[in-house]
Computed example of a mutant assay.
Amino acid sequence: MSSVTSPAEIAASLTELWSPRVVAEVDEAYIKVARVHGTLAWHSHADEDELFYVLKGRLVIEMEERSVELGAGEMFVVPKGVRHNPIADEECHLLLIERKTTQHTGDVVTDKTRSLQEQLRPLG
């Protein structure tokens, strides 16, 4: 059974940076929220698109061909296979939509990489 949730409130309550948390699922996709600041890592997802929706703040998504800057209420889909690097100069809250098979930082592993089990752990 579904319940009413506030992605913005959940993202604001997170204590870890760059540690997405699953807040819902729709068919074969997870809806995640994250609190970010600084740089994640250059990476790609070979078989999955990734939707970034900014709840609060600003986010730059660097890609090899171009960069996009998103403000609150704006979204961008990074197409599958495109190397990208999310950057937030100040704290930013995100909603992400990704297939359930999407690895946090693709095939790149850093100290910020979170496993799916970490992303699925209970909130609070």
Rank of each mutant, 00 (worst) to 15 (best):
A72F: 05
H93L: 15
K56G: 00
E50T: 07
I97N: 08
M1W: 07
L55R: 05
D89Y: 04
G38N: 05
V68I: 14
K32Y: 08
R35H: 10
T15R: 14
L120F: 06
E69S: 14
H37Y: 02
Q117H: 09
V33N: 06
K100L: 05
S44M: 10
L59Q: 03
R121M: 12
I61R: 03
M63P: 05
L123Y: 06
D27Y: 05
L14W: 04
R35S: 14
A88E: 06
T102L: 15
L14P: 06
V54R: 08
L94D: 09
A29D: 13
Q119K: 06
H37N: 10
A29S: 12
I97K: 01
I87W: 04
E28N: 15
T5W: 04
L120P: 08
S3V: 13
E50A: 07
K100M: 13
G124L: 10
E25C: 06
V33L: 08
S67Q: 14
P122C: 01
H84A: 06
E98F: 00
A12V: 02
I87M: 10
A8C: 02
D47K: 05
E65Q: 14
V77S: 02
S3G: 11
R21W: 06
T101E: 14
G81D: 09
T101W: 00
Y30M: 01
Y53V: 03
E91K: 03
L14V: 08
V36E: 01
K80E: 11
T5Q: 13
D111M: 02
V26N: 10
S3T: 14
V108W: 00
P7K: 01
V77T: 14
I97D: 05
H93R: 12
M63E: 12
A34N: 02
